[in-house]
Every structure is written in C-alpha cells, then in structure tokens.
Amino acid sequence: MPRSRPPAVWFTDEPDRKPRLSRERIVRAAVALLDAEGVEGLSMRRLASRLDSGTMSLYEYVSSREDVVDLAVDAAVAEIELDGGDEDRPWREALARHMTRGRRVMRRHPWLPALMATRPLLGPHALARSEWVYALLHRAGLDGRRLTTAVGALTYYVQGYAGAENLWRTRQRDPAAEGELRRQAQEYLDHREERYPTLARHAGLGDDDFDASFRLGLETVLDGIEVHIRASSRQGGSGATSSAP
C-alpha cells in the first residue's frame, strides 16, 4: 500500500526539548537558503550544512522538506506588516497600503509569490493577514462569492505582478541593456504598425516604471471591487459602510 503523507506541519506541535536546534533556527536558515538559491536549491542536506548540523537532526523538528517550505512561507509572510491603524482608514487606502507591502516582501523573497499560490496557507501569520483582508472587505459591504472573488482578484494580481517582475529582473540586470531591448521591441512593432496598429501605438514597451504600473493596476482592481460593493449595497447585502469612499 502507498505510504500516506505525515500530517501537515500546522497540525503538530514542536517537540518539547531544548537542544542546539529549534524550529525557529531551522526556518530562519531555510528562508536565507531560499533567498540565496531558490526553491530548487532547498534540500535537507543543504539546510543541515547551513546549520552546521546533521541532516537527520532536522527530522526531530519537521517531518519533511515540505514542512520546511510551509514554515518558511509563513515566516516570510509575517514580514507583511499589519498596521492596526489601517482599520480606521478608508477601505481602498488600507488595501492599497497592505497590497503594496505584500509586493515589497515578495520582491525581497523572489521565491515567495509562486509558493503562496501553490501551498496551503494555514500558518498563523498567513491566516492573520487573510483574516484582516476578508474582514476589511466584509465591513465595506461584501460577502459570499463577491467577497471571495474580490480577495482572489487582489491576491492573484499582487502575486502575479510580483512574480513576473521578479522573473524579469533576474533576466535583465543591466539597465542599459534593458533599455536597448525595449527600444528594439518597440521598433519591431513600429515596422508592423499596419498589422498591429493598437500595439504599436499603445503597448508602451519603453515604460520601465514598475512601481507606477503596479499602482495603476492595483487601482484598476480596486475600481472593480468598488463597483461590487455598490451593487451589494443596492441589493441589500451586508451593507456598505462609511469607510467606502
């Protein structure tokens, strides 16, 4: 019979012992290793070497590499600051600040966006941030499918933008070379304007301001969410609050 996977790390307690290692030390080292070598570079052997420990010693604290990955993701997510004062801000402003912080953390840890999109985010830090976003939008007037869809739109926009930005920056490290590549791409379209007139005139391939593009894209997503908040209010949903602009 196939062996079943051990319970997820979130369903087990850390062993009650005080040796040289700890889950906290293991997770800190795992985050550093992921930052340096990416997901493919994370192995229990390399992690043990970074900790100057035996590989088998790690298994006293975690059941598998998968546990280490989940713990590292939650530790990185914890860097997305939760500002209690944001709850008193208009919902759009509070969400914009939070999502901008999220992008900043995902830029700091390039491996994070893909893992956040593919792992069960059940760690305490991830759940606290999910609760904050859900609660904010619920108070603004969303519930049910409108609420979950709005959260998904925001989440996937930030993760997708940060992931694409990280990948681009790993390929384009020289600003001069990037500028030349953008110029050549725009010139390629210009020479084919009859076939691709809208792209040639409006694609903006020379625009390398990632920050401005992120803000404008985020505003576009928030515009859509605001439409749903107003619709929910008109239909007698949970009721939009005064925090909505």
Rank of each mutant, 00 (worst) to 15 (best):
D13R: 14
D13C: 09
D16W: 13
R17M: 15
K18Q: 15
K18D: 13
K18Y: 15
K18V: 15
R20F: 11
L21F: 13
R23A: 02
R23P: 03
E24Q: 15
E24N: 14
V31K: 01
V31I: 07
D35E: 12
S43H: 07
S43P: 03
R45L: 12
L47H: 04
A48L: 12
D52T: 11
D52M: 10
G54W: 04
Y59V: 01
Y61K: 03
V62R: 00
S63D: 15
D67E: 04
V68R: 00
D70N: 07
D70S: 07
A76V: 05
A78D: 07
E79M: 11
D83G: 07
G85I: 04
G85A: 15
D86T: 10
E87Y: 08
P90C: 03
W91G: 06
E93V: 09
A94T: 06
L95F: 04
A96P: 02
R97I: 15
T100W: 04
G102H: 08
R103N: 02
R104A: 13
W111A: 00
L112I: 07
A114P: 01
A114F: 02
L115K: 03
M116K: 12
R119I: 00
R119C: 01
P120F: 08
P120L: 09
L122R: 01
G123K: 05
S130R: 08
E131P: 00
E131R: 07
W132M: 11
L137R: 02
